[in-house]
């Protein structure tokens, strides 16, 4: 309160006055309460209410019976792509940090491009690129690596992962490289003069010193993958197995079954629970 000296004085003179931040925050907070917090709470509550309107676990049993495969698929897609994007991003960010050259500068900019492309466009791109007679298969056939009568089927785990890594690894690079830039050259020089080879430089100096931004990047893409609807919906759609987000859309669009949709929603909350807590904790600490 010390910053706003004048209003402190005014407050003392007139007794209690309305603090200005209440007015400033009121529209945004009430909007978030109505349009975010209320549906969030009701998504959890309604998952426990069955078709007859009674309190029960019916929705969970049904979701478990019908979609266990998809929940596991979502989880494995998420874990795999978070780790894969993380490894790709750390390697490239290390290269950008340690090796200054025209090529590395160009690549640093090139890898920014996918970040700016919205998921719906990425989905369409992958849809045409990875199709059984899409550009990738045709190109591989020209190189005689595959037979076009038996093309690679990519509208599955592999294609979905390609799409996720294509879009999210560059974002991960951006955050992790940003963290690497904060590390002073003197640490790296010291490591080098102590005889550390690049592998030791990475594992002993760069990664430990940059742990916070690596963690934030991984946590962010992890929850983003769990919640992404566009890419799996346009790439895999209703095939089995598919992701939770696609199942939720099917439950709502075809059956108007909000109960099971909400139970699936709660499953997706559970998948991100640990990362969400970590993210909220670090962000609140950072802001305060």
């Amino acid at each position: 309160m010390g910053k706003i000296v004048m209003s402190d004085n005014v407050q003392k003179r007139r007794g209690f006055i309305f603090p200005p931040y209440i007015l400033l925050l009121f529209p945004a907070v009430s909007f978030m309460l109505l349009v975010y917090a209320y549906p969030f709470v009701s998504s959890v509550l309604k998952s426990f209410i069955n078709k007859e309107g009674a309190l029960s676990l019916d929705n969970y049993f049904k979701a478990w019976d019908l979609y266990l495969k998809d929940i596991l698929f979502t989880f494995s897609i998420t874990v795999f792509n978070t780790i894969a994007s993380g490894i790709v991003a750390i390697l490239l960010a290390v290269y950008f940090r340690l090796h200054e050259s025209p090529i590395s500068r160009f690549l640093l900019n090139l890898y920014r491009l996918p970040i700016f492309i919205p998921f719906v466009v990425v989905a369409q791109m992958m849809n045409s690129f990875l199709a059984p007679h899409g550009l990738l298969n045709v190109a591989l056939a020209q190189l005689r690596l595959i037979d076009l009568n038996n093309p690679l089927q990519l509208f599955n785990f592999i294609g979905l992962s390609f799409g996720f890594i294509w879009k999210l690894a560059p974002f991960t690079i951006l955050i992790i490289y940003g963290g690497f830039q904060m590390i002073d050259n003197s640490y790296i020089e010291a490591g080098r003069s102590a005889g550390a080879k690049w592998f030791k430089l990475i594992t002993r100096i760069l990664i430990p010193m940059n742990k916070p931004s690596i963690m934030v990047a991984l946590v962010l893409i992890y929850s983003q993958i769990v919640g992404t609807f566009t890419l799996p919906y346009m790439l895999i759609g209703g095939k089995i197995p598919t992701t939770i987000t696609v199942d939720i859309a099917h439950r709502v669009n075809y059956f108007r079954d909000f109960g099971v949709a909400n139970a699936l929603g709660v499953f997706s909350y559970i998948l991100v629970f640990v990362t969400a807590i970590y993210y909220l904790k670090t962000k609140v600490k950072e802001v305060k």
């Binding site: 309160m1 309460l33 917090a37 009701s42 909400n262 929603g265 909350y269 993210y279």
Partner: peptide, 30 residues
């Protein structure tokens, strides 16, 4: 400003980044 219940308000603006948003849209549809 230093805001009372600041953490709660921060949570409100951070949660959409931390949790999937699709269930929110589904319930808004309802």
């Amino acid at each position: 400003y230093k805001i009372p219940f600041g953490t709660f308000i921060l949570f409100l603006f951070l949660m959409p980044n931390a949790f999937p948003q699709q269930p929110i849209f589904v319930n808004l549809l309802d």
